[in-house]
Nucleic acid binder design. Structure first.
Lengths: 228, 228
DNA sequence: TACGCGGTGGGACGTACGTCACACTGTTGG
DNA sequence: CCAACAGTGTGACGTACGTCCCACCGCGTA
């Protein structure tokens, strides 16, 4: 594990509460996983008690409806954690994890983490905080599904992706989200066609430019307004 | 606090991990709150670091959109916990809590709970499990918003309410949910009118009987099928 | 008795968005 | 270098559900 990886890992909620020494000890239990784009880490319905932190790249969490339609819960990048639900609450996984880009992950099993939870209460407290934040965010997304139209949700999703993966440049805010429009549609709970039309509309208004698996945001303020 | 209250409280996730002695000690910090139907316990945007467990009655958690429309996150009954997000993650409340019936609550402040989190890791672990379960449930509801039509979501909501508040009788499963159709509509993310029509349709098919703030489920299997 | 008032029942109408269909473009690979 | 395919762009059409109406019913208050 490189210094850079150590740095990325230290920003994950799980490690934030630990001092240098504790972090080092916990890192000793970590195993690294690599996936190519499209490869799946685990599937809905499988049992599993490992959590993961993204070191490099992006991975998506998806759920499949009985009829086969898919729904994207989130796209995770460096320092973000997932898979912990099956660890805290021992039940089969309720989502599949599939690599969106080539990705490297740090994995940690239940047995490795358990002593830290019981022996270092500040770690548990930190995790409670992380879950509480997630619950809040999820509730926000739910409200959007009820109150906001598809273009509004697309705008919101782009702004969220921009915040997490955006790279400022002289022409605008470059958001290389690595998602197909199909995936973007699954993320906002709409059809691919409708999302495409919303994006085309935004582009026609000069708010953004569409690129392959990316957008360049040109007028972030207008986009913000449209998202409310 | 009556013996009955103690019993209700002991079923809450917060107390489940404690032995008799620990539970007794933690109960000493609890303060009781009473509300009449319609009274609000706290409002979205307020600061607050108390969590509550319902002792008797029902309370709803609602969010208000900027334009005033409301969205019902959940309806909570005896032994159920809420308000803990602001306790684990110190931020203003993101929902309001309003009594649906006359209700009695056990409240616990951050300062009272903190020593238990740090001193009794099994309590923290239990809470992590509770939050993980909630996150799973919330993800389910979100998927329903995307994939299931309004009648389906109404059926799902009724089945959920039946599971938590249903009383079997010789005619059918009596679900006294205490919600107006307006509130039921906010719970499933639809308009009051559409929910009314869905209920009327179910009643016409003989699956249930509509009563004031209640339904009697006559054919739970059909209802289950309709909810998928 | 009359009068609101909160809640329910239901019809008429418009529209946002899903589905279907097809054409176009860029990339992979044999 | 062309085939095959994944991804994108766009129009036509149907429909589920929101909005707007109003009628009705029971209940408490004057």
């Amino acid at each position: 594990m490189t210094d850079r990886d150590v740095d990325v890992l230290s920003r994950a909620p799980l490690f934030e509460a630990l001092d240098e020494q504790g972090a080092k000890a916990l890192r000793a239990n970590v195993t690294e996983v690599r996936l190519a784009r499209g490869q799946t880490l685990f599937n809905e319905g499988e049992t599993g008690d490992r959590l993961y932190v993204v070191l490099e790249g992006k991975i998506k969490l998806t759920r499949t409806a009985p009829d086969g339609r898919e729904n994207l819960l989130s796209v995770l990048g460096p320092s973000e954690m997932f898979g912990e639900l099956s660890l805290f609450d021992p039940r089969p996984r309720t989502a599949s994890a599939i690599a969106v880009t080539e990705v490297r992950l740090a994995g940690l099993g239940h047995d490795d983490l358990r002593p830290w939870l019981t022996g270092h209460p500040e770690v548990a407290v930190q995790l409670l905080r992380a879950l509480a934040q997630r619950l809040r965010k999820t509730n926000d997304v739910m409200a959007d599904l009820v109150f906001t139209d598809v273009p509004g949700r697309v705008a919101k999703a782009l702004l969220d992706l921009a915040e997490r993966f955006g790279q400022p440049s002289d022409v605008g805010l470059h958001v290389h989200h690595d998602l197909t429009q199909e995936e973007l549609a699954q993320l906002v709970g709409a059809s691919r066609e409708t999302v495409n039309k919303a994006l085309a509309d935004f582009a026609a208004r000069g708010w953004l430019r569409i690129e392959a698996r990316a957008v360049v945001i040109l007028d972030i303020e207008r986009l913000r307004k449209r998202s409310r």
